[in-house]
């Protein structure tokens, strides 16, 4: 497993683009529906899970060792940087601490259940999940 400089740079470039896309989308959602509930992060994580599943099917289950440059750029870099667990955790904690306990539990539960379902659906769509 050698981390060649070229592959690391592809991961970094994907991560930069993914992070900026996440910022743009969370800003848009904040403007549209306010910041009382983290709709932007929810959208980012669900859409990212769907796309990651679709790419896993497309790349034919790129598993373990043989990671191509395309997989590293698009999935590990771009979608990995686009989606986030840290914001999910912080925003759920903040909702809980400000008394919105159902919102906090709902945020975690919907992200988890819908995220896994969408990733599986994306994978199935591109034709590999048996």
């Amino acid at each position: 497993m050698n981390a060649s400089v070229g592959l690391v740079l592809m991961v970094a470039a994907g991560g930069a683009l993914g992070g900026m896309a996440r910022l743009a989308i969370t800003n848009l959602f904040a403007r549209w529906v306010g910041t009382a509930f983290p709709w932007g992060t929810l959208f980012v994580n669900l859409s990212g899970a769907l796309l990651a599943g679709a790419l896993a099917g497309w790349f034919g289950l790129a598993r373990g060792g043989e990671m191509t440059g395309g997989w590293l750029f698009l999935v590990v870099g771009l979608l990995g940087g686009y989606t986030t667990v840290s914001s999910l955790s912080l925003q759920s904690l903040t909702l809980w601490q400000s008394g919105h306990r159902r919102g906090a539990i709902g945020n975690v539960a919907v992200t988890l259940v819908a995220g896994l379902a969408l990733a599986a659906f994306g994978w199935w769509l591109t034709g590999r999940l048996t």
């Binding site: 899970a49 667990v85 914001s87």
Partner: peptide
Amino acid sequence: CGGFTTFSLFSL
């Protein structure tokens, strides 16, 4: 923190 953590890879 946003780039370091990932939900999509967790799902995959």
